[in-house]
Amino acid sequence: MSQKGFTLWFTGLSGAGKTTLARLVEKELKQRGHKVEVLDGDIVRTNLSKGLGFSKEDRDTNIRRIGFVCDLLARNDVVAIAAAISPYREIRDEIRRITTAPFIEAYVECPLDVLVERDVKGLYKRALAGEIKNFTGVDDPYEAPGSPEVLVNSSTETPEDSAGKIINRLVELRLVQAALEAALSEDEDSVVRARLEALGYV
């Protein structure tokens, strides 16, 4: 079966778990036969968007570039996964409007106090100390999506739970096929077989 491309766009505060989830979803989709590319915000800023800063204008340019590449990939039947803070709603909605392939927004929610506590990259500490300026959630705004296709919460869910939730939503949206093995349990399978046998279909 040919697989269709789409853009899966993770948005959320720094450290919320966008990259972790992008990689988990990538792995699962590859196992189901999809071609997948992840555009990670941190990595993109070292090449595609090298030299851009964190002003609103630069942030918007960064997101437009990621959105552009995602759409190029998606319309060639690749699943393009973007993992970037993308704090401004307007620009995310612009990407949604102009992309030609389906655009799925996944909001990775996590309360700021949990993130400060977690502070995996040590950035919140520095931002709160004033060493980093324009840090989203500290002295730069974050505009949460109004109605994302899928909402996960990394303070209450395990990464595996969240990834599972995202995959299920993609199945619901008919962008991804249900796992063949997991669709019915073995017991159910044998009942189905018996019923079909009784009518001569197996």
Binding site: G33, R174, A183
Partner: peptide, 23 residues
């Protein structure tokens, strides 16, 4: 059909509602 083969395989599976690719 009521049964089909998994991709690149002779292994039988029973398609269900989750395998329907149209709205």
């Amino acid at each position: 059909g009521f049964l089909d083969l998994q991709p690149n395989s002779y292994k039988i599976f029973f398609p269900n509602s989750k395998h329907i690719r149209s709205a």
